[in-house]
Structures are given as C-alpha cells and as structure tokens.
C-alpha cells in the first residue's frame, strides 16, 4: 500500500487518537516521527494542524508527558512519552476499537437481511475475516 493513499477524513479522525497512542507505546517520540510512522503504516499523511492539537489534548488529559531535547544540528524536538494512564487508555481503546471494527466488518460483509430474489444484484463483497477480540498490544 503506497504512502500516498488518502482515506476519508471522518475515518481518520475516529482512529487518530488511538493510532498516536500506539505509536507512543514503542517509546518517547516527537510529532514528525509520529506522523511518519502513521504514513508508513499506510494511513496517509497526517497534517501538523491535526496532529499537534491532538498531542496537546493527550498532554492535558495526562496520557503523555513532554520533554524538550536538543536536535542533532537542527531545532530542538518536543518528545512525548506515554504515562501509565496513557497505557491503560491505549489498551482499553484498542480493545473497543477491534470489537467495533469487527462488528462493522460483519455487518458490511454479511448476507442480506431479507431473502434475495433471483433478479437482485448483490455486490461482490470480500468474505468476512476471522477477527479475534483479544488484541495483542505491547505493554
């Protein structure tokens, strides 16, 4: 999947908080690195105007702490680290998201509700995948 794919803004807005928390779970990191990580994961390009207010809200909610570090020959970087509260939030949101997206997938790919007539055209939908409800989330 190319890094230039553009997903609907509504979808991204729904998952951005969770994805940022996940990106932070691997260790302290800074805004641009988070954006690059999300882009590399195939979620497309996250603008600074969207990302930094979100990081600010995470800080205000106590999910992250911040620390400025001198950059290598460039401007300093503001590093964000996940707090214990943030880790709990990540786990809980991830569980709920997987449940939610599983339900959505089942609905979208499931059989039509009413008996299908021979002349109706049902679109070829991808077969439902088997989703697990216990997520593998690193601690």
């Amino acid at each position: 999947m190319s890094e230039d794919v553009v997903w609907p803004g509504e979808w991204l807005r729904g998952v951005l908080g969770l994805c940022v928390l996940r990106a932070l779970a691997d260790g302290p990191t800074y805004g641009y690195a988070i954006a690059s990580r999300l882009a590399a994961a195939g979620l497309g390009h996250v603008k600074g105007g969207t990302l930094y207010p979100l990081l600010g809200r995470l800080e205000a909610a106590g999910h992250v702490t911040v620390e400025w570090r001198q950059g290598e020959g460039g401007p300093g970087r503001k590093y964000y680290s996940l707090t214990a509260t943030g880790e709990r939030e990540l786990v809980s949101q991830a569980e709920r998201w997987l449940t939610f997206s599983g339900l959505t997938a089942d609905l979208v790919t499931g059989p039509p509700a009413a008996a299908a007539s021979p002349t109706s055209t049902t679109a070829e939908l991808p077969p439902p995948s088997t989703t697990t409800t216990t997520p593998e989330v690193p601690r």
Binding site: Y32, K47, G48, G49, Y52, P53, G74, P75, G76, K78
Partner: peptide, 24 residues
C-alpha cells in the same frame, strides 16, 4: 518552536502543514 521543528523536518511551509495561523 514545535511548529518550526516540524516544518524543518518535513520541508513543508507552515501554511501547508498547519493551515491558517489564527485557526491553528
């Protein structure tokens, strides 16, 4: 300074990465 750091690494101007200054 955080916005500056982002623009320096991404190579994009602030108006593109952050939109309108007042709204941001």
């Amino acid at each position: 300074v955080e916005a500056d750091s982002h623009c320096a690494e991404s190579g994009t101007p602030a108006s593109e990465a952050f939109g309108d200054a007042v709204e941001y």
